[in-house]
Amino acid sequence: MKKIFSFGIVALVVLTVFQACEKDLPTNLEFSPYNFESLDEDGGTWKPVLLDSATVIGIPAPEDVSSAAYQAELADLKAASSNLTSEQEKAVAHWAGDGLVRWNEVARELAAKYNLPPPPKPDGTYGAPDPTNPSSIPNFPFAHPPYACRMFAYWSIAQFDALIAAWHYKYEYNRPAAYKTDASISTYLPQNDLPGYPADGAVVAAVSKRILSAMFPLEKAYIEELATEHLNSLQWAVSAQRATSYGATPSVVVSLASFSPVQGRMA
């Protein structure tokens, strides 16, 4: 009986060790917000791939920083970023550093999710995905490698062009980021001299939403939810109190002024 008892003890110890060796697996790229080497001030003059020029897309001039409308936006921003829930804090940490990386992860996830060949029908024939009825079997799209390549290409080009346009207007209007116009505003994101309007983070969210929704129509709701969270996270990131609680001293080109009226408008 004694032997059996020690047998049990040994078993328990082994089990514990066995389980303790397992760690969580990485489900996204882990990084702290970082500084870009330069602001690419001349980015607005780069040659877009699809747009004829950066000015093809019109962005209204922002109101003056002394205007009542802008002051109201600042007040909204401060309100939005106070008393964050833990979910909101997680969203800030997840998105704020580099939306391009996160949207790339989303694109990869959807490419993998939809990489399913059409199944045979009962009569042995195979159906084809139908873009006009994407939820019929087989679902649209069948994201085989050529389709996935096309999706990544469209999405990359659209971001590139959209950011060129954004940079053009940033330096045309030269409206400073919120933390430059109001000293009481701080941010989890790194500070820099990039003009805040239009917000490049919002541009990335909007263009990603547009392209990925077109390529994966059944995922519209999911993509919409992610885009909204991305946009909101840019506002939530503004919080002097939390600047330290996230640990890093972030710095990224993405500026803070995500509350600008251009949200969702690019692309």
């Binding site: 397992e22 697996l25 990485p26 489900t27 790229l29 996830e109 993998a112 999710k113």
Partner: peptide, 16 residues
């Protein structure tokens, strides 16, 4: 890299 349905991306060759 692999994809787990209803869960998402895993950037690892290790499977739980």
């Amino acid at each position: 890299y692999y994809y787990i349905p209803n869960s998402g991306n895993v950037y690892s060759s290790t499977v739980d």
